[in-house]
Write a protein that binds this DNA or RNA. Structure first.
Lengths: 117, 117
DNA sequence: CTGGATCCTCGATGATACTG
DNA sequence: CAGTATCATCGAGGATCCAG
């Protein structure tokens, strides 16, 4: 068993780095998107307004490196590649979705000026 | 009732901005910390390895602006100020905690090299 | 102790052009 | 279509000094 708990509050703990990966603005959008099934590069570009090709590729690659996303290259021509959640990524997506949903449901309260004190 | 759903995938939607606020690396650490009760500036500095005074203040201020955190100044000297979660922040903290916990429990799988294919 | 104000650097990110 | 490579910029963030 594991008696040493990872501690994101420790600067050197790997989990700290993971927090950064997951906390990433684009990851937070991409991951839940893939819950609906595999998506291709162009599809993601269209789905996520404002993301650049560079950031999309970069983010997907990182998600792949962390075993959250699987890249499948069909080796066809013209190129056909899609991305899907790994089992691990799927598990994470559920958590992130609840975060996104929280935002969608509460963002008005967040932006509302306090009545006062 | 509200028939227009906020859509974080739209570049101009305010919820997109919120995602960025919440997705912030430091916010993700600060918010769950405050679940245990109010904390002072120096306490937070000590609790979160590697954060600078500037980022701490800045992040707290932003969280306050979004009604997630309440700042209380006791008006004493030497200065005594503490920060606590607002009800809204408390609600968010629960969600974020589950994200953090997910990371703590799964980060090893994230960093493990794929066996192969 | 809390934290405001400055200066400065480095890395993240966007835009563009090119390739298989 | 799916990227890679390069360049230029801009702002996030750290370090430092100051103040109530």
């Amino acid at each position: 068993m594991l008696d040493i708990k990872p501690d994101p509050y420790a600067a050197l703990c790997p989990s700290r780095q993971i927090i950064a990966v997951i906390g990433d603005k684009w990851s937070l959008l991409i991951i839940p998107l893939l819950l609906d099934g595999p998506m291709r590069n162009a599809e993601l570009m269209r789905a996520i307004e404002g993301i650049s090709q560079k950031m999309l590729t970069q983010t997907l690659k990182r998600l792949e490196d962390y075993n959250l996303v699987t890249r499948r290259d069909y080796g066809e021509v013209p190129p056909r590649v899609d991305y899907r959640l790994s089992p691990l990524g799927h598990s994470l997506a559920a958590v992130i979705s609840s975060l996104d949903n929280w935002v969608i449901e509460n963002f008005e309260d967040m932006t509302r000026k306090q009545s006062h004190a």
